Simulated assay, not measured.
Amino acid sequence: MKGASGRIRIIGGQLRNSRLDVPDLPGLRPTPERVRETLFNWLAPVMSGARCLDLCAGTGALGIEALSRGAAGVQFVERDARAAQALRDNLARLKAEGGQVAAVDAQVYLQGTAQPFGLVFLDPPFALDLWTPLAQRLEQGGWLAPSAWIYVESPRQVAPALPASWLPHREGTAGDVRYALYRRVS
């Protein structure tokens, strides 16, 4: 891929060991393999047939990993046109069905007509501090199924203010990253 800075690997499911091209873009920070492996071990009982939203998708590694492991579909939302195109290219090359890419800002996307998702990946660019506003829009805008799972990735020292209905399920740290899985209670 022209302008690619590297490749990352899908670690499980039908696309296991497939590589994703990663464009060289400022602030693009793919979720590390070890973190993805842990997260998808946690999510294994709920992956089959899940409808997912990969908000601030970046490389799309989380959503593509979900498709690889049996998710029914993933809506990818990525504001950077180059990252969105790289994501489309990776989905096409891997013949990963069920993925749709919206090249739009996450906050703008969440102003649209809501469709509830059972699993949401919330991993915005760390420098933009969008966890709380995006979480509020997800919760108040009808984007979450009643018992949705929400994955949140943030800097290790940051504890985002999240809706009270998001109960912590599991969490961990890896390097400078804090990752947590929440379960929504309605």
Rank of each mutant, 00 (worst) to 15 (best):
V120C: 04
P155Q: 14
A114W: 14
L167P: 00
K95A: 08
A4Q: 12
F126I: 06
V101A: 09
L15A: 02
P133N: 10
R7Y: 03
M47T: 05
S18V: 00
T173P: 02
R9G: 00
W166C: 00
K95S: 06
K2T: 13
Q115E: 15
G112N: 11
L28S: 05
L128T: 11
Y182N: 08
L110Q: 08
V74T: 01
G118H: 11
V185Y: 06
S5M: 09
V177R: 13
D123P: 02
Q14P: 00
Q111M: 10
P133M: 08
E37S: 11
C52L: 09
D176W: 04
N41G: 14
D21F: 08
G49W: 11
L181Q: 06
K95D: 10
D105C: 11
S165P: 01
P26F: 10
E37N: 12
I8P: 00
G6M: 12
I150F: 11
I64K: 01
G99A: 02
W166Y: 08
L162W: 09
A4S: 14
T38W: 12
G12H: 06
G118S: 15
S68Q: 02
P146T: 05
R36W: 12
P155V: 08
V177L: 15
Q136V: 04
A114V: 10
V22N: 06
A127K: 14
L144Q: 11
P125M: 08
L67Y: 00
S68D: 04
L25M: 07
L122V: 08
Y109A: 07
W143S: 01
S186M: 05
L62S: 06
I150C: 11
A50L: 05
P125S: 07
L20Q: 05
Q85W: 04
V177D: 10
A114Q: 15
Q157H: 15
M47I: 03
F117K: 05
V22W: 07
R16D: 05
V35P: 01
R16P: 01
L162K: 10
S5Q: 15
R137D: 09
L110E: 06
A103G: 03
A92D: 07
R137F: 02
S186G: 13
M47R: 13
L43D: 09
P116S: 15
H169E: 15
L55P: 00
Q85M: 09
P23R: 07
S18N: 04
L43W: 12
A164E: 12
P23G: 02
R29K: 07
T31D: 11
D24N: 12
L55G: 06
